[in-house]
Each structure stands twice: as C-alpha cells, then as structure tokens.
C-alpha cells in the first residue's frame, strides 16, 4: 500500500470508531460523566468540605485532576477493548484482515479511536468540574502531553486485552481486578505522603500514580513524584505495549487460525 492508501485505511478505521461510540453515546459518553459528577458531589463537596486541605489545596481542587485522569484512563481502555473484541467476536475484523491494510495501521486506528473517546470524555468531565471548582492550568505542555500519552497507553492495553480475550468475561477481568484497583490506589483521592513509608514505596510501583500526579502537576503545580520520570515511564509502556500488540498481530494470535 502507498502512504496515501495507508492514510485512507487509517482514517477509515478512525472514522468507523468515532461513528461507533457516537452512535451509542448514551452508553459511552454519559455514564462516565454521571459517575464523575457523583464523585465531585460526594467526595468534593459533601465529604471533601470536612477533610480540609490536601497537598496545600482544598480537597475538591485536589481530586478534580485525578478524577479527570481516571475517566480518561477507563474510557480509552474501555473503548478499544470493547470495540476490538466486538469485531473479533462478530468476525467483522476479517473485513480488515483480508485487506492490504498493514498491522500497524490496524493498531493505530483502534488506538486513535480510544484516544479520541478518552479525550472527549475528559473534556466533558473537565467542563462539569467547573461547576464545583475553578481550574487554572499551571503547565499546559505537561497537562496536554500526559493526557495524550496516558490515553495512548490505556488504548494499547485495551487492544492487548481484546486480542487475548476469548469471551466477554475476559474483557471485564482486567478492568475489574487490575485497572480499578490501580486507579483507586494511584493517588486519585489522596496524596501518597499520607501513607506509611513502606506503602509509599509500594505505591511507586503503580504506573497510574505517575500519570495522575503528572497531570495534577500540570493543573495544580504539585506532585508526589518526579514528572520527568512519569513521562519516561509512560513512553516505555507505550513502546512495550505497541511492540507486544504488533508482535501478536503479525503472528495472527487469536485472529487467524
């Protein structure tokens, strides 16, 4: 395929993905907004007002960046894992597999779809958060950079999960038993400085902690971790996950008999 043909194939996959999640917007865009709004109301306003300050900010100011990041993570992951597993389950993935579209275009197409949904939900959640607090951006490049890279990491992870999944249980195991604990223990609701030293060390093994704190640094200018190491870590994850996905695609794992 020429570069122009590859671009057409890529834009076709991305367009199809956007049409898919916009067609079912009640399932894809509204639930995360309702969930996060409840978090804002309960943790930000009702409980948060009694907690006081966290890291030098009011509790609602502290949790908003974490909650925005949490919705980006879950939606970019959820979009790719459900979309790609669905085309695998219905065998409509064969439409692409019989075409000359290279594997990396298939991967990029689905990942871009996940990134776009993650960012769209992130923007809506950010807009809702403005009803509960004021947001000023401390460092725009860090904020935008970490958001996009995080959405890419979790879109890739969703693709990896969908490639391996044999049934619908397999696509809910990772979000339930891995993603949710990592997110909740990743510094969304608290600063790890509140933890005993041992658990601070354990927390630093959690990749979500770096993404949430880098984003919080971009918004508030405060972080529990080194922001540069967060960017390096995220880039390493992108390289590892994309290499693994391309390897599996080239070997037809769970796609070609």
């Amino acid at each position: 395929m020429t570069l122009q043909e590859q671009w057409i194939a890529l834009s076709t996959i991305i367009r199809k993905e956007i049409v898919r999640f916009m067609r079912i917007w009640v399932q894809t865009l509204i639930p995360p907004v309702i969930t996060v709004t409840l978090y804002f109301v309960i943790f930000g306003k009702l409980i948060g007002s009694r907690i006081g300050e966290m890291g030098g900010f009011s509790y609602v100011e502290f949790v908003v960046p974490g909650l925005i990041m949490m919705s980006i993570i879950t939606n970019s992951y959820g979009n790719v894992v459900s979309s790609f597993f669905s085309v695998k389950f219905q065998k409509s993935i064969e439409e692409v597999l019989v075409s000359p579209t290279p594997n990396y275009i298939i991967l990029f197409g689905y990942v871009f779809g996940g990134v776009i949904r993650g960012l769209l939900v992130g923007i809506i959640v950010t807009a809702v958060s403005l009803f509960f607090t004021t947001l000023t951006i401390n460092n725009l490049p860090v904020t935008i950079g970490i958001v996009i890279l995080t959405a890419i990491v979790f879109s890739l992870a969703g693709f990896f999960n969908a490639l391996f999944a044999r049934n619908f249980d397999d696509i809910s195991i990772i979000p339930t038993f891995v993603l949710t604990p990592l997110t909740y223990l990743g510094g969304v609701f608290y600063s790890i400085k509140l933890l005993p030293e041992f658990w601070q060390g354990v927390s630093q093994l959690n990749p979500v902690l770096y993404m949430v704190n880098a984003f919080r640094y971009g918004i508030l200018g405060t972080s529990d971790i080194n922001v540069t190491s967060a960017f390096i870590g995220v880039m390493v994850f992108i390289v590892i996950l994309s290499s693994a996905c391309l390897y599996l695609l080239s070997h037809g794992t769970r796609l070609r008999s």
Binding site: Q6, I8, A9, I13
Partner: peptide, 9 residues
C-alpha cells in the same frame, strides 16, 4: 468502509 481498507479514496 471496505473500500477504505483497500485504500480507495
């Protein structure tokens, strides 16, 4: 969309 996968404008 199938046309797109084959690189058709």
């Amino acid at each position: 969309n199938q046309g797109g996968y084959f690189g058709l404008p």
